[in-house]
Simulated scan of single mutants.
Amino acid sequence: MESDLVTLNELLQIRADQDFTSVVEQLRRAREVFYEAVASRFEEPLQKHLRSLAQDSYEEKKTLARWINGELRNLGLAVKCPKTGLDSMLCVSRDRATSTGAFRLRPFVDNTRRTVSSVELFPMHLTPHFERIEPFADKWRSNLRDEDGQGERSR
Rank of each mutant, 00 (worst) to 15 (best):
residue 1 M to D: 07
residue 1 M to F: 04
residue 1 M to I: 10
residue 1 M to N: 15
residue 2 E to D: 13
residue 2 E to V: 06
residue 3 S to G: 10
residue 4 D to P: 02
residue 7 T to G: 00
residue 8 L to S: 07
residue 8 L to R: 05
residue 8 L to C: 02
residue 8 L to Y: 14
residue 10 E to Y: 15
residue 10 E to G: 13
residue 11 L to D: 11
residue 11 L to C: 07
residue 12 L to E: 11
residue 13 Q to Y: 14
residue 13 Q to W: 06
residue 15 R to F: 08
residue 15 R to W: 13
residue 15 R to K: 14
residue 17 D to S: 11
residue 17 D to W: 12
residue 17 D to K: 09
residue 18 Q to L: 12
residue 18 Q to P: 06
residue 22 S to L: 10
residue 22 S to Q: 12
residue 23 V to Y: 09
residue 24 V to A: 13
residue 27 L to W: 13
residue 29 R to K: 12
residue 30 A to L: 14
residue 31 R to I: 01
residue 31 R to T: 04
residue 32 E to V: 01
residue 32 E to T: 10
residue 36 E to S: 07
residue 37 A to L: 05
residue 38 V to G: 01
residue 41 R to C: 06
residue 41 R to T: 05
residue 44 E to L: 03
residue 45 P to F: 03
residue 45 P to K: 00
residue 46 L to A: 03
residue 48 K to E: 12
residue 49 H to Y: 14
residue 51 R to Q: 03
residue 52 S to P: 08
residue 53 L to T: 11
residue 53 L to M: 12
residue 55 Q to Y: 00
residue 57 S to L: 07
residue 61 K to L: 02
residue 65 A to N: 04
residue 69 N to K: 09
residue 71 E to C: 08
residue 71 E to M: 09
residue 72 L to Q: 09
residue 73 R to S: 13
residue 74 N to D: 14
residue 75 L to S: 06
residue 77 L to R: 11
residue 78 A to P: 11
residue 78 A to I: 06
residue 88 S to A: 15
residue 88 S to C: 04
residue 89 M to W: 13
residue 89 M to A: 14
residue 90 L to A: 01
residue 91 C to G: 10
residue 91 C to N: 11
residue 92 V to N: 11
residue 92 V to I: 10
residue 92 V to L: 10
residue 92 V to C: 05
residue 93 S to H: 02
residue 93 S to F: 08
residue 94 R to W: 07
residue 99 S to W: 07
residue 100 T to G: 08
residue 102 A to Q: 11
residue 104 R to I: 08
residue 104 R to S: 00
residue 105 L to P: 04
residue 105 L to G: 11
residue 105 L to M: 13
residue 109 V to A: 07
residue 109 V to T: 12
residue 109 V to M: 02
residue 110 D to R: 06
residue 110 D to V: 05
residue 110 D to F: 01
residue 111 N to M: 01
residue 112 T to M: 13
residue 113 R to K: 14
residue 116 V to N: 01
residue 117 S to A: 03
residue 118 S to C: 08
residue 118 S to P: 08
residue 121 L to E: 07
residue 122 F to T: 10
residue 123 P to W: 02
residue 123 P to K: 04
residue 126 L to K: 05
residue 126 L to M: 09
residue 128 P to S: 09
residue 131 E to D: 14
residue 132 R to G: 00
residue 132 R to D: 09
residue 133 I to G: 14
residue 133 I to A: 05
residue 133 I to M: 09
residue 133 I to P: 08
residue 134 E to P: 04
residue 136 F to W: 10
residue 137 A to Y: 05
residue 137 A to R: 01
residue 140 W to G: 10
residue 140 W to I: 11
residue 141 R to P: 05
residue 142 S to Y: 07
residue 145 R to V: 14
residue 145 R to D: 15
residue 146 D to K: 15
residue 147 E to S: 13
residue 147 E to H: 15
residue 148 D to C: 15
residue 149 G to W: 12
residue 150 Q to M: 12
residue 150 Q to E: 15
residue 153 R to P: 04
residue 154 S to I: 05
